[in-house]
Design a protein around this nucleic acid. Sequence first.
DNA 1: CCGGACTCCTGTGCGC
DNA 2: TGCGCACAGGAGTCCG
Length: 305
Amino acid sequence: MVIAATFLPSTMPELPEVEHVRCTLAPVLVGARIDDVRLVRRDIVTGPATSKPHSAPGIRKTSRTPRIRRADLLRGQTIIALHRHGKQLAIEGNAGGVLCIHLGMTGQLFYLDRGARPPNAAHIHSIWRTERNGETGRLMFRDPRRFGGIWVFESMDQLEDERWNMLGVDALDLRVQELRTALTGRKSPIKAALLNQNLIAGLGNIYVDEALFAAAIHPLRRADDLDRADTRRLAHSIRRVLRAALRSGGSTLRDYVDAQGRSGEFTSRHRVYGRAGLPCVKCGTALVKAVIAQRTTCFCSHCQP
DNA sequence: CCGGACTCCTGTGCGC
DNA sequence: TGCGCACAGGAGTCCG
């Protein structure tokens, strides 16, 4: 039986999904000792970070990638904490090792009780065998499209210095002033600015569209054109949209596990994303689809002037 | 420095 | 029914 599995049935892993993964996994992983690690695909791991600047997961520099030892992947360490910044997750070991995990677009991180089998065994790239209070289990990283990856660090300090400090403030508790600072001097469309993780960390295509709709702001508005009222509404909308998604994360998971995917509830959560051509929930106008910042964008031309 | 285009990858869903 | 193709997107890199 799968006890604490974290699946992402049809949702893109943006901030709320990653936070949900963190909250679900922490109770079973913190205090667990990693007895063994099996790395199925070596090239999903970057590091240790002492040598080269980190490359994109998509760019395979096999010859220059330092050899990954199982000790780098926390073998022999006990997990003491799970952290998150934006869409990135970190697993901290008691001997200082840290794994930074990025789910990308199709990444999944889940835990299986002893004997439980993964629903889909294809594209599982790394498996950690864990033991806690005599109970064994397995943590798995699965990512069909491999836009995600794992980065190895020697400490949380190093992870922050080399990676997380480059990211903007976490979007979950974004303050009006922080949004204002992030957008200052930005001539790009507001949609592009919100997708930029170096300005604000955690927003992806789905929740950007949802937040802009909730704040009644056109996605092509120049970012530094927003006045105080716009900025205030947008910051509040971002927080509200993310927190609502986070709250429904648990119920989505339960629906999925209990009803074996037959529940259609979670697909109707979005008010604009994926609803091009359908009537706006506020005014009834057909929602528009456009490509902005290389991303499919849905909005209401009437409600978002 | 900034912004936009391109690139990686595979499952899904559509049209013929 | 089956095949082929367009499409989906996070974020690093490159270029103007």
